[in-house]
Design a protein around this nucleic acid. Structure first.
Lengths: 145, 145
DNA sequence: ATGTCAATTCGTCAGGTGACGAAATAAAGG
DNA sequence: CCTTTATTTCGTCACCTGACGAATTGACAT
């Protein structure tokens, strides 16, 4: 019931990118590389956002082999996290960006972590994070610089 | 149901000073000078915060003679404002700063806008915004920068 | 143990945010 | 009309934040 945990949660959910992450996680847990592929921002950026969301008690992580999976939490010590996650379930479902993200998430789920990481943490057609030479030539994937 | 109004409300309620304002307004409407006296920040600072809160649909203003009174709103077009105000009613009531503000608010209410404005928009013992010469000598009120 | 590779941390930079004091605005009253 | 004065707006500054790329970490496979 103190100001600090309140502020942590509110600042966390006030950022558009972090809401996008929370909204795509409503469909179930996702690997970091999948989140990167959907949101299409640098891995360091996404990693920072995930850290802040976890610090606020909004998400939790689970390690499986090489991959780290994140999912919604809200059951931790922070009393505000659960309420805000519940609110968010009802909110923003009509937002065009959220809808678009949801489509991309479905795609990312079908591909799976392995394919996405091998594809440079990008969805087909998206910009890759790691420009691997890739045996076959990818038409419009990698954009240097 | 779009991201913009959501962001407006969340960013508004994520700032500690603005939460303090919302929490003291839970007791009913207050004049700007009373809010300044309770929060003890510069008038321009408070004015900016009030503007942001009003833009988010969290508070509304009412003019009476020389004074502008603010009160909680949440009934406007922004669907997130009402929910967050309802949440805030239950939240942070045990926070020491919020409690302290509440005491100061009671004091400010009892004094009324006129006395507070004449006292330099400060509670007795607080720093004044306007250093008026004041016919009688005030012991520890005015603190020149 | 050693290389690989997903993920995190570090260093940096542009832009946003909150604070202040000074100046402008607008309503009340002489 | 002109002063007074409560409030807002403007200009400035330090600090926080979100983005990036590069370097580092740490688990897995060989």
């Amino acid at each position: 019931m103190s100001l600090r945990p309140y502020e942590d949660v509110m600042k966390a959910v006030a950022d558009p990118t972090r809401v996008r992450i929370l909204k795509i996680l409503e469909g179930g847990e996702l690997c970091v590389c999948q989140i990167i592929a959907v949101i299409a921002l640098g891995q360091s950026t996404i990693s920072k956002h995930l850290f802040l969301l976890r610090s606020a008690g909004l998400i939790k992580d689970r390690r499986d082999k090489k991959w780290v999976h994140y999912s919604l939490d809200g059951k931790g010590g922070n009393p505000y996290a659960g309420t805000m996650l519940r609110n968010l379930r009802k909110w923003l479902n009509d937002d065009p960006l959220v809808r678009k993200d949801r489509e991309r998430t479905t795609l990312a789920r079908n591909l799976g972590p392995v394919a996405i990481c091998e594809g440079g943490m990008a969805l087909p057609g998206g910009k890759t994070v790691r420009c691997r030479p890739a045996s076959g030539g990818e038409a419009s994937a990698a954009r240097p610089g």
